[in-house]
């Protein structure tokens, strides 16, 4: 099984994308599955690090809070832009304990796609993360947000 389908999740995701782009029918399911199996076998040549999902049940919950947080900060940033409110942009440096590559990638996507925060630099030797915050009122608040809300959940999922 390992030799035929080295990345089962990737194969399933590619099949779903194939069917979304064409149509949901038995023929496209078979064709898509063959293409996806070939593509995921080709992935082995790249030798990506295989992420281990320890507690995948938390993923829908994480998606939910991220969507709500993004909606909230959409309103916050929109009011900053429209009201020309005085703001204090600045860099915040956060010491991270998360070391898993996939977890860091997901955290980077969450931080950058939220309006108001942007991932700038991560030092893998020290685990120091530098983010830029548009409306920096309380530095500790942002550190707590990243560490407690996202990092803790991601560590539970990936480590």
């Amino acid at each position: 099984m390992r030799n035929i389908l080295p990345y089962p999740v990737l194969t399933a995701a590619l099949t779903v994308v194939w069917m979304l782009l064409n149509s949901f029918s038995l023929g496209h399911l078979l064709l898509g599955a063959v293409v996806a199996a070939g593509a995921s076998r080709a992935m082995t040549a790249l030798e990506p690090s295989k992420p281990r999902l320890r507690r995948w049940q938390l993923i829908p919950w994480l998606c939910g809070i991220v969507l709500i947080d993004i909606a909230k900060s959409n309103f916050a940033v929109a009011s900053v832009i429209l009201r020309r409110r005085a703001r204090s942009p600045g860099f915040v440096s956060i010491p991270l304990e998360l070391r898993d590559q996939t977890g860091l990638a997901v955290l980077a996507c969450i931080v950058t796609s939220t309006p108001g925060t942007a991932w700038v630099e991560y030092d893998s030797a020290t685990g120091e993360l530098l983010i830029h915050v548009l409306d920096l009122v309380e530095r500790q608040e942002w550190i707590d947000l990243i560490k407690n809300r996202y990092e803790a959940t991601l560590r539970e999922i990936f480590e």
């Binding site: 959409n74 940033v77 942009p89 796609s113 309006p115 925060t117 942007a118 548009l134």
Partner: peptide, 12 residues
């Protein structure tokens, strides 16, 4: 670095 935040409104 302030401007980086603005297009994310449209992309999220």
């Amino acid at each position: 670095f302030e401007r980086v935040h603005a297009p994310t409104l449209g992309t999220s």
